[in-house]
Design a protein around this nucleic acid. Sequence first.
DNA 1: CTGAAAAACTGATAAAAATCATGTTTTTTG
DNA 2: CAAAAAACATGATTTTTATCAGTTTTTCAG
Lengths: 238, 238
Amino acid sequence: MFIFAENSAMLDKSHKYVSCETCQVRKDSLFSSFCTEEVHQLDENKVCSFYRKNQPLFVEGTFSRGVYCINDGKVKIFTIGESGKEQIIHIAKEGDVVGFKAMFSDDPYKLSATTLEESNICFIKKEDFLSHLESNPGLLQTVLKELSKELGERAVFIKNMAQKSVRERLATILLILDGVYKDEMINLSREDLANFVGTATETIIRLLKEFKEEQLIEIHVRKIEILDRKKLLREAGS
Amino acid sequence: MFIFAENSAMLDKSHKYVSCETCQVRKDSLFSSFCTEEVHQLDENKVCSFYRKNQPLFVEGTFSRGVYCINDGKVKIFTIGESGKEQIIHIAKEGDVVGFKAMFSDDPYKLSATTLEESNICFIKKEDFLSHLESNPGLLQTVLKELSKELGERAVFIKNMAQKSVRERLATILLILDGVYKDEMINLSREDLANFVGTATETIIRLLKEFKEEQLIEIHVRKIEILDRKKLLREAGS
DNA sequence: CTGAAAAACTGATAAAAATCATGTTTTTTG
DNA sequence: CAAAAAACATGATTTTTATCAGTTTTTCAG
């Protein structure tokens, strides 16, 4: 009975208790510089929730009420085009804080965020986040740095879309995903991959087959294992 | 004689004296919230220079020493791909402050900036800008808002590159340039246009001809006049 | 004012990738 | 557990856009 309960708890993240004090991923999050007192404050005011796969955190066009701190799981950040096709801009993982860019303007979200797998995510109210930002110059510094970093990343993304072939872009994105999924295997649908690379699903399927034949990757049903990072980097053309 | 001198001065921006106090474009710049004292301080420490066409303000890979405030002129912000082809990310105009994103990380510039025409541009040292930022919460607010706005714009740019045809992208970019060049005609080389839209120069030339035949634009040698913004917006597909 | 260089333009061809149609697995769910 | 749905896969075809190889026009320095 207890063994069942334990197993169940291991699979079902909804029962996992998360305190900011002991949260392992906080160490390399926006909140890494927080002192004990601040962590305590964060802990008191946050709301931690379990998200099923494909649950939205926020939707473009709505207004920000706070930020989301991912304790466990993956979240795709995307925008929807005229035709209804998603364009994935970024994939956030454990330790990432999501949705704080929308808080500095009075404009609604320009992007949507949806979980890619079962996730544990804490919500911090806008007012709490902003008050931390005011009282903690370190946090402000980190936020400015992060904004600047993302601006750079998006410029590179634009250049890649403009100048690289689909094959090169897929290689590039696979390497990015390798960093996101770390020791796990990449676990994205072909459609999501296509919406990240900016191409058709069929093209992704064909190219993955090519990469597999060239021993750059291995495919386990739907999960992708990177076999040869060096060659893949060469394929990425940069 | 005097008439000649006057005409010459009107064409030659190098002799135009610019004080922050009277600078017309400061009103809608990052520094719009500055009080008299702050404007005075800005004025004392800035260095105002004349730039010829195609002069670089900064080059990717080098380190930031301060920010550039465009009093008059246009500046392209771009990054260079593997093949040496530029990808233009943004075109800055009078009143824009350029290069401040690179100041919040210790990383080198990820983008380059070069004048597109004769320009008057003031330089503000990193330390001066940062000290203003520290003492003026309004400036910080504006900076955060600007960073957030640009992040949104780049996400839209990525989506456009991924999901729109070259024709739609050209229409989109022409409308953006219409805003940049305001009452003037758009004055960009076909190559720069191609590097902004993310396509080949020949394709741009052919599409401009189409747009001209469809009475959306008029071409005066190299300058482009927008005739029908409404139709162009429809062509842009959003 | 002129000649060389740069930019703009044109047409033909090739390559890349989208689209469409259809079949096969895999996953989800009652 | 079986049926339905969703995701994955493959082949044929079409469209878009890049590339190449020129010509003409414009710009600019001397």
